[in-house]
């Protein structure tokens, strides 16, 4: 093997405290982790162990009390609010437990939202890209439906398409299958696995061992600290990166500006 590639995201000594009236909640107590490009990480741990807090920090939704966070080369731990918005819109994609689609928008419009906040012009090209992504997640025939008209699994697929539209460096998912039955969960996980094989970096919080089993690496947390960090081999039958389907590769490519 050649030189190890530079990690796409690094957190170093990350501390997050919440200051309530009388007590200080120490949600993270010095977390140091590297996330490599093409990683598929499952964050596990008991409730209250700080998984979501960590994911929010990695997702630039919040700022740490202490420590640094490098996204690529850039230290993003202490950027301003607007700069964090910028980072989110360019480099990050989010998938939530409760889908969090915008109820007033159709499927395509939901997928377009991150592009809007990137300052993109909505053209036929971007529209085509959104349609391709809807296609990728298997919703080509639902483009003009509203979230209310879709099942939970379908909504989560829209959310995944939305998380992909800005071609993010990292996709962050907080219990993406938490509201879904096991069959639908498997479908969603299959989709995420395919994306990961196509080269996407995914960091996912989960409670379930079944779900974590899809990942290549499992990080267990306890009381705001990393307990174990184990690299499992990818699922049996999993394909290495270059061999993923050309269709997925094509769908993921950003249109040339």
């Amino acid at each position: 093997m050649g030189a190890k590639p530079l990690p796409i995201a690094r957190v170093i000594g990350l501390v997050k405290n919440y200051y309530l009236e009388s007590v200080v909640v120490r949600a993270l107590r010095g977390v140091t982790l590297n996330f490599d490009e093409g990683d598929f990480v499952a964050l596990m741990g008991p409730s209250g162990s700080g998984k979501s807090t960590l994911l929010n920090l990695v997702g630039c939704l919040d700022r740490p009390t202490e420590g640094s966070y490098f996204l690529g080369e850039e230290d993003v731990a202490h950027l301003s609010d607007d700069q964090l918005s910028e980072v989110r819109s360019r480099y990050l994609g989010f998938i939530f437990q409760s889908y969090n689609l915008l109820a007033q928008y159709t499927v395509v419009e939901n997928i377009e939202v991150p592009l809007l906040y990137q300052g993109c012009k909505l053209t036929a090209e971007t529209r085509a890209r959104c349609v391709r992504l809807a296609n990728l997640v298997g919703l080509a025939d639902r483009l003009d439906h509203r979230p209310m008209q879709l099942s939970g699994g379908q909504q989560q697929r829209v959310a995944i398409a939305r998380a992909l539209v800005n071609d993010p460096h990292v996709i962050l998912a907080d219990e993406p299958t938490g509201n879904l039955d096991s069959r639908t969960s498997d479908e969603i996980m299959q989709l995420l696995t395919d994306l990961n094989r196509a080269g996407k970096t995914i960091i996912m919080v989960t409670h379930e061992n079944d779900i974590a089993a899809w990942a290549r690496r499992v990080v267990r947390m306890r009381d705001g600290q990393v307990e174990t960090d184990t690299r499992t081999e990818a699922r049996p039958g999993g394909l290495p990166v270059p061999e993923s389907s050309p269709a997925i590769q094509a769908s993921l490519g950003m249109p040339s500006p």
């Binding site: 997702g59 607007d82 918005s85 989110r88 360019r90 989010f94 969090n100 915008l102 906040y117």
Partner: peptide, 16 residues
Amino acid sequence: TREIGIRRALGAKRRD
């Protein structure tokens, strides 16, 4: 409020 949170997460600035 939730919609605002979603939009912020997807990259909306305060000004937006």
